[in-house]
Simulated scan of single mutants.
Amino acid sequence: MKLVYSPAEWNPLWLNHLRENQKIGFVPTMGALHEGHLDLVRKALETADVTVVSIFVNPTQFNNSTDFEKYPNTLSQDIALLEKYGIDYLFIPDTKTMYQELPKLKIDFGDLEHVLEGKFRPGHFNGVGIVVAKLFNMIRPSIAFFGQKDLQQVAVIKRLVYDLNFPVELITVPTKRELDGLAMSSRNLRLSPTERKQALILINCLRFAKNELLSGKSWRTVKSIVAQKFQDAEGTTLEYFELIQPNTFEIYDEFDSNLTSSICVAAFVGEIRLIDNLPIIG
């Protein structure tokens, strides 16, 4: 595994692979790697000729400065982990490499900008869109891999690629979960043992809602029951629990088994904000 710190270092390497007509697979991350990230890495290794992983904690996508400051930094462990997997390159740019100055450009993702994560984290998807566009321009991958856990982010990046004609194939990899069902996330490192148990309410409510909907219960009834479950649970605060179309993020008022749908949830467990989602009809 070769460490690369700048586009100037990467460009001749990329050119060599281009001459060899090799497909470059790209996994962008913010570090604090877990099995969910490694699923993306494994998929890249299976699919592409050359695998590049990036680690960059992007300041422009945090609308909460405290959240940015507390984001886990495990770079030495991440490097050791990726070396075991035999990826070809690890791209580790610093902030000056990514942003000589804060970008003045703003990206508006339309309806995606105003619902769920867009509504509760204003400016977040602008930051995501800009950093992903920069990374795509720097790495110029053939294929890029993203996790289903960040479902709305996947929809945003699909919009970015489609509207700006990036020559990149996107592959979405299913959410990786702990044995008890909790979606793997770097934020889980910040949960206390008690909060770790409390966090199971997210997946438990998603599974409950899916079963109830598929057995014929109305969405309004299911949503009301879930809201009460969160209200009764100690240490958790529900932010949203919505039935959506997973590509457009149109919010459904009723469940229709003929329509593609997923449920998305965001909640605070203590002071840690967690998100998750579950496909209902694929």
Rank of each mutant, 00 (worst) to 15 (best):
F241N: 11
E195Q: 15
G25E: 08
I251T: 14
K217M: 10
D49A: 09
Q152K: 00
Q22E: 11
E117T: 04
T29P: 01
T60Y: 06
I139P: 05
L191C: 08
L13A: 00
Q61W: 09
L206P: 03
S65H: 12
M138G: 03
P167Y: 04
G31D: 04
L75V: 11
W14F: 15
E46Y: 14
W10A: 00
T172G: 01
F166S: 03
L112R: 05
T175S: 09
Y85R: 06
D232Y: 10
F208Q: 04
Q100I: 12
T194M: 07
E178Y: 15
E254H: 13
G181M: 12
Q153T: 09
S192R: 13
R177I: 14
Q152C: 02
I251M: 04
F255T: 10
N258V: 03
E35F: 06
E195Y: 10
P59C: 03
S186K: 10
T66L: 11
L206H: 02
G282R: 12
P141N: 08
L200D: 06
F241G: 09
R177E: 09
L164T: 09
T260M: 08
E195G: 06
G282Q: 13
S65Y: 11
T66N: 10
V53H: 07
I251C: 04
A266M: 03
S257R: 13
P93I: 08
P28D: 02
G31N: 05
N258H: 13
P59W: 11
P174H: 13
N258P: 00
I225P: 01
S257L: 10
S65T: 14
Q152Y: 00
E20Y: 01
V154T: 15
G129L: 04
K96V: 03
Q77S: 09
F241P: 11
V132Y: 05
L278E: 12
R140G: 01
L40E: 09
T95K: 14
T29D: 03
M30Y: 06
L81W: 07
A80L: 08
Y5K: 10
R19A: 06
I171R: 14
S65Q: 14
G127N: 07
I251A: 02
K197W: 05
G25Y: 12
L274I: 12
V132M: 11
E101G: 02
K70I: 00
S65W: 11
I107H: 03
A80Y: 02
N277D: 06
E250Y: 05
F109S: 05
I107V: 15
V173Y: 13
G123M: 07
S186C: 05
L135M: 15
P167I: 04
E239I: 13
N63G: 11
V156D: 07
L213I: 13
F230D: 10
M1C: 00
F109H: 06
I139Q: 06
F249I: 08
N21I: 03
C205N: 13
G270I: 07
